[in-house]
Amino acid sequence: MIVFVRFNSSHGFPVEVDSDTSIFQLKEVVAKRQGVPADQLRVIFAGKELRNDWTVQNCDLDQQSIVHIVQRPWRKGQEMNATGGDDPRNAAGGCEREPQSLTRVDLSSSVLPGDSVGLAVILHTDSRKDSPPAGSPAGRSIYNSFYVYCKGPCQRVQPGKLRVQCSTCRQATLTLTQGPSCWDDVLIPNRMSGECQSPHCPGTSAEFFFKCGAHPTSDKETSVALHLIATNSRNITCITCTDVRSPVLVFQCNSRHVICLDCFHLYCVTRLNDRQFVHDPQLGYSLPCVAGCPNSLIKELHHFRILGEEQYNRYQQYGAEECVLQMGGVLCPRPGCGAGLLPEPDQRKVTCEGGNGLGCGFAFCRECKEAYHEGECSAVFEASGTTTQAYRVDERAAEQARWEAASKETIKKTTKPCPRCHVPVEKNGGCMHMKCPQPQCRLEWCWNCGCEWNRVCMGDHWFDV
């Protein structure tokens, strides 16, 4: 396979590697080409510095992935760790964990309700045991953590790749202090920090972006993250068709209702045909949960890209028209025109101005929308079919299609509260000796007794199943 190397943020060049090629071997190839010592090179990928003893497969490097290699003399205490030698983080029983690669970060837990604080980093599902597709590297999971809308060759929703760059020099040479644990960490600028490894760059702020994971991409090709779309790892039924499908869209209502993408497309087109989208002054033209839940309008309007190009163009047109109407304007009634106009409040005669090729020149009556006339309008008909009709959803289907309910059931079956801080902690095999993952707590306690870890627990039921 081919990976592209950008040395000291210059133009990239291809390097041929195998899945079992080590990072140090990659350094040696680059060092020979650039005429520099291999031990002064640092390989940066997806916000993480890659260790010498890791392989291309370990690092989730795919065909035509772009890695950054910078030349920086080692500072005291760094060289041993980078070589894969006596790194205290690798000691058996050590409590410190390697910062998780962005290629394996899962933010789907952050669609849980606000009262489930902490689960994004504490609760991990076991539903990723799908067998890898044919042709994928051994052991590589097909679980997708992110979804994007690819405006490039795909023109559809695709699995996405999370990447990070330095907000100062805009190069992907920043190593994160810690990985993101929720969508806010990724979507809110300057929320996460790190250290830029580019020479002479003092940058410390992280800037995240997404790429389409279905095809090789260049540095400049980015895609918009659709953070309401998630892999259906909890096997929730769709609120409309009641099938279990994946991926799904999880509405931001209190129940976190789930809808499959085909039904979401149908829901949007139906509402669009009836012009029953909601115009929100802050958000724009949007839709609420299909069950009509309060405070559930979709905030990231790129989710409506699921409509496809033709329907999305209609959505944008109707949204612009609705904006004009909300501002007190009118639409030209001549067939084939429909231009938005903003006449004076007491102006009865409205002319669709033909300047700049935008208007048709038609003069019409503001009251009856017919060709302009003197005197009273002959008839004014009330528009028919403008009443909002509820999208029919079966109550039982709505009850079963809740992301929140599956989460709470998982928590109930696989977790116990920490005796000190009461945060839910998952036990997935292993011994009875637990350690609270909350940095402010870190209590060592017994899963069996529910009390602080002691010699009695150690001698009596340390390794009970």
Rank of each mutant, 00 (worst) to 15 (best):
G359T: 13
P180D: 02
H373P: 02
P288E: 08
S9R: 03
V70F: 04
R163T: 13
D184E: 13
V17K: 00
I411F: 10
V290T: 07
T175S: 14
S246G: 03
E310A: 08
V43I: 05
I236W: 02
C253Y: 00
W54T: 06
S108T: 10
P14N: 03
V3Q: 03
H265V: 07
I306G: 03
V186H: 01
W462N: 03
Y267N: 02
E28L: 05
A120C: 07
G114L: 09
G292E: 07
V330N: 04
N8F: 00
E96D: 11
T55L: 13
T237P: 15
W447P: 00
G179P: 14
S116Y: 06
Q440A: 15
C377W: 02
L102W: 08
K211E: 15
H215D: 03
I2A: 10
R234S: 07
G152L: 06
P437F: 06
K427H: 10
S384T: 12
I44Q: 02
Y147G: 01
G139H: 11
N52Q: 04
L301Q: 08
T217P: 09
C360A: 03
G213V: 06
G160L: 00
Q64V: 04
S109V: 03
K48A: 04
R75M: 13
V250N: 02
Q71T: 09
S108P: 13
Q25D: 10
C260I: 00
P180H: 01
T410A: 10
H373M: 02
Y315T: 12
R334D: 04
A291R: 08
T83G: 12
H227F: 11
V350C: 07
V105L: 13
A401E: 02
E376R: 11
H461P: 00
N356M: 07
F24K: 09
F7K: 02
P14V: 02
Q34P: 00
W183T: 00
I188F: 10
V5Q: 02
Q440V: 09
R396Q: 11
Y149T: 00
R334E: 07
A405Y: 12
V425G: 13
C95F: 14
Q78V: 14
C418S: 02
V43P: 00
N295Q: 08
R97D: 12
R33Q: 07
G213L: 05
C323Y: 13
D274V: 04
I411L: 11
N428W: 09
A406P: 13
D20A: 08
N232H: 00
A92V: 11
P247I: 06
G292N: 09
R6T: 03
H257I: 00
H265W: 11
Q178K: 14
V3P: 04
C212L: 01
P99M: 14
T388R: 12
C421A: 01
I298C: 01
L187M: 12
E376G: 10
L307C: 12
F210V: 05
V290E: 00
K299C: 05
E195T: 13
Q252Y: 04
V36P: 01
H200A: 13
K299A: 07
C253I: 01
P37W: 04
M434Q: 06
E96I: 09
Y318L: 06
G94R: 12
N273T: 03
N58P: 01
E28G: 05
E310F: 11
R392Y: 12
